[in-house]
Design a protein around this nucleic acid. Structure first.
Lengths: 233, 233
DNA sequence: ACCTGAACACCGTTCAAGT
DNA sequence: ACCTGAACACCGTTCAAGT
């Protein structure tokens, strides 16, 4: 616990702990300062500002991710493993996906991950601009799914349910609106009813949606490769 | 301009205007109150709180979206048009994608859109849980891409560049880091160099990435349909 | 080189009090 | 039923002053 001076690494580590524990809205410079036994404003010297601190934290966690060996498992398995690894990372650090604004603006941790992605899709047979696009497509899907299933989202939902439970009048109104929508939009209603009958909420379904989406995209990429001559090695 | 009392619709409309003009960080209850000529706290009676106001605003803009006629254009075209329409909506309202936490928690505007999506993928031949997943997959991709290319992201980037320009020392450091990454991660470096040579930044590429991703996913869904017996009508 | 404390300009939200 | 104003408990950030 004893330490001479603050440093950047230490601040980033503490920020990640706080983010993991309390989510993106739980991080404030004052709380972080308290955690580090410093004035809230001490961090500005080391990390510039809060936004930059978030970028540093995001890059740091990217380097946790385990990378497949493309040469031994083949491109399709490697691509699948990269997608699952990215999703798992977003799951473990629910705030990560909210920090990612642009993959381009990043450091060592993400670069390492991206390089392996390039290697993977190059092995598949993609070249030049096609290669860029093939790398991007799966990770836009992962990002979108992570946004939907981030625990921030889950927390918002839980809170909404608690509020509703606390105010039975509002709860009843929400149910009435749901029923009205289900009646007006029959396919949506049927899907909701089926999910309710299976006892599946969004959380249970999300793993299956992810698996479906991953295979769909891999199939789609395979189809694009097949649509060319001599593209695959 | 003269009006008797505030109402929910009016508040939501003003919020959308403010959000479109200044982005999600430009919306505050105080500014909104000012715009409406009311006390900042007057809105609480009508919309409960800020989060709920954002949800109402998001649902409102969803009803702007134009829906294709599945019966006349066929499922593949309809699916493509739904994806393009959703992306265009996210482009026009850069804050939308940041408000969407879960598609499930929504109202009339989104329900209308989703119903057409269900209709589209049902026409393609998907049923039951597969239908849910087929509907979800494209929109997770759209969401992910919208996140990356949201003008909030663009603004963050622009601001970073301005900061860098103002502080040439930092600028030089950033360039040095980029070069170091490009050297360490050759495929990434090659891609960056190629993009620079083509004079393409992220903004120019994103339309092409989107087009590629859309066709990839449509191909992937087609492949999944073909993998079954009698699934397609 | 590194840190503190006060200060500035904001936030969302509650709530008694008004009409 | 609807609105106001003051107040509370927060924010991120700057900057002079200290060591």
């Amino acid at each position: 616990m004893a330490r001479e001076t603050l440093n950047r690494e230490q601040i980033v580590r503490a920020a990640i702990e706080l983010l993991d524990a309390e989510g993106i809205e739980g991080l404030s410079m004052r709380k972080l300062g308290q955690r580090l036994g410093s004035a809230a404003t001490a961090m500005y010297w080391h990390v510039g500002n809060k936004e930059n601190l978030l970028v540093l934290a995001a890059d740091e966690v990217w380097s946790e991710v385990r990378l497949p060996d493309v040469a031994t498992v083949g491109w399709r398995t490697a691509a699948r493993e990269l997608m699952y690894a990215a999703r798992e990372l977003c799951d473990r650090h629910s705030w990560l996906v909210r920090v990612i604004t642009s993959y381009a603006a990043a450091g060592e941790g993400l670069a390492r991950f991206q390089e392996r992605a390039y290697e993977t899709f190059e092995a598949a047979g993609f070249r030049d601009a096609d290669l860029d696009w093939a790398v991007s497509t799966p990770f836009m899907f992962v990002t979108g799914l992570a946004i939907m299933s981030s625990s921030d989202a889950a927390e918002v939902k839980k809170r909404a349910e608690q509020d509703a439970a606390a105010q039975p009048e509002q709860e009843a109104q929400a149910v009435a609106q749901m029923n009205a929508l289900a009646a007006k939009y029959p396919r949506l209603g049927a899907s909701m009813a089926a999910q309710a009958q299976r006892g599946q909420g969004f959380v249970e379904q999300v793993d299956e949606v992810f698996a479906f989406g991953v295979e769909t995209i891999l199939d789609g990429l395979t189809a694009r490769l097949a649509g060319r001559s001599g593209a695959s090695e």
